[in-house]
């Protein structure tokens, strides 16, 4: 069921949202590298006014624009998730779930899974963008989707 909280719900399997957007982009932190000891995260991410992962930060902000634009356009009717591509445990199940829910063809599913980059957008189980994103292009893809 969708919660009443503004904009976000956790969705039961029984009800497929009108649209599902998965923003795949890296969080501005280390993962899977050195465990909990000596890692770049949280308080240790900014030194002397400079971020440790400037490119990741830029991608986070680009993804944020897409996130907010889709949230504003679709509201609670859409499920919008952000998944770090290094989160192997969650990424593949999340993709497969949407591929099944939106009845994506086998060919399209393979294209999606094998075509994902470190910054990608998956809309209704289909890869629609990789690399630099343009919010307007993505919204146009949304309008064109079934």
């Amino acid at each position: 069921m969708y919660s009443e909280q503004a904009g976000v719900g956790t969705v039961s399997e029984a009800r497929v949202p009108e649209h599902s957007l998965i923003l795949i982009r890296e969080w501005e932190q280390q993962m899977s590298s050195s465990g909990c000891c000596g890692r770049l995260e949280g308080d240790l991410l900014e030194w002397g006014g400079t971020r440790c992962f400037p490119e990741r930060r830029r991608h986070m902000e680009e993804a944020g624009s897409v996130y907010r634009a889709f949230r504003e356009r679709l509201g609670a009717s859409a499920e919008i998730r952000v998944v770090d591509p290094r989160n192997f445990l969650a990424l593949l199940p999340t993709l497969i779930r949407d591929i099944r829910r939106y009845r994506v063809s086998g060919r399209e599913a393979v294209r999606t899974i094998f075509g994902l980059g470190v910054n990608s957008v998956v809309l209704d189980g289909r890869l629609v963008a990789r690399g630099r994103w343009q919010v307007s292009d993505l919204l146009a893809r949304l309008e064109a989707s079934p």
Binding site: Q5, A6, G7, V8, T10, L23, W27, Q29, Q30, M31, S32, S33, S34, G35, C36, C37, R39, E41, M60, E61, A63, G64, S65, V66, Y67, R68, R71, I80, R81, V82, V83, D84, R86, N87, F88, L89, A90, P93, T94
Partner: peptide
Amino acid sequence: HAQEDGVDFVPTNRWVLWGHHFTSIAGA
């Protein structure tokens, strides 16, 4: 939710978040 911006503050399904959290802490 309170500061949701799609950048730093993003409500995340607990299974996805567990994967993220565990992958962050596992190491040598």
